[in-house]
Write a protein that binds this DNA or RNA. Sequence first.
DNA 1: GACAACCTAGGACGACCATCCTAATATTCG
DNA 2: CGAATATTAGGATGGTCGTCCTAGGTTGTC
Lengths: 191, 191
Amino acid sequence: MSDMTTRDHIIEAADQLFYRQGFEHTSFSNIADAVQISRGNFYHHFKSKDEILDAVINVRLANTQMMLDKWEVEGKMPEDRIRSFINILIANKATIKQYGCPVGTLCTELAKLNHSAQPEANSLFTLFRTWLRRQFTLLGRESVADELAMHLLARSQGVATLANAFHDEKFIKHEVQQMNDWLSSCVKGTE
Amino acid sequence: MSDMTTRDHIIEAADQLFYRQGFEHTSFSNIADAVQISRGNFYHHFKSKDEILDAVINVRLANTQMMLDKWEVEGKMPEDRIRSFINILIANKATIKQYGCPVGTLCTELAKLNHSAQPEANSLFTLFRTWLRRQFTLLGRESVADELAMHLLARSQGVATLANAFHDEKFIKHEVQQMNDWLSSCVKGTE
DNA sequence: GACAACCTAGGACGACCATCCTAATATTCG
DNA sequence: CGAATATTAGGATGGTCGTCCTAGGTTGTC
């Protein structure tokens, strides 16, 4: 923990603030306060605010990949692995209620800003998409694997958006149960 | 059209810009350019930027209510009315692809900004929610009407978010078809 | 111990923001 | 017509933003 460089601290703080307040609404002063360093000091580590965003997205990509790899090892059956994905809604229900989905809200914001980092942010979605697609393929649903992956992603997004708007955790639980039921029926259809 | 007051023009331009660029990212200069009036002139019509947002939300609420009322008249069966709701994804697929859902993206942004107009924006969701709930009640699903309404709202939101991120209209069509199938199975279950 | 490389602090900068002010112009109405 | 009112334009204000600059401090290396 203590061997983290100042750069890492900046990225970590920016990550949190971008998630909670949004990218545009987060200023260098906000990050500086969080990291407890001087404002003008940033430009020794990053050339611009956009470069911090790039770094944040790259960290998120790496963490997401690690998480997917872990699920791949932990879950013996593809069905179990997909349930790991569905379960992040439960595991993060408190923060989702407060701030929405970190991926979805970032992509939504960058789309409005017409920001150049849109493709990088969207690749976070793609990471989940291709991973889920592979699981559905392993499940014997190759011909519709991508549709099923997108369907699941969309439902997660919708749940996160509404849970955030209505500040409702119980809704998450209810929808997750339905998603699990849906997955069961997906599996059953192939046996 | 020409009997629209300057105030109405401001609201209309702000509505579009808030949708396309986001609330925070839209400045008075942007709106002034769109309406072709002077910047300092705003404060004769509105006390603040937040007051413009309020006006925009109120217009959206009124328009939404009119739309719901129209669907209520046009659709004889509750099932047809719910299909009208599902169909807005198709009707607006081009703009959704570009800018996402006007309701969802606004609520998401205001949540990040911790803005005081959050409840007003969320009431746009509530308008759809209570209307859908009533339709499902009329469909004989009173005990789970609210769950079904929220489920449908969530799926629409998810579709809009992903269609926006991936710039994919075909995905909208595909998901809408599934939502229609889902609705059919909902109806069949009660007959 | 000296020198170079890295790191930091904090102020200066120009741009833009929401907001306010004032003076000029339209419009309304006695 | 003329006075009161409504509307407009455009500049001023103070604040914040991202960015840059410079001078002082720390660290590592020979």
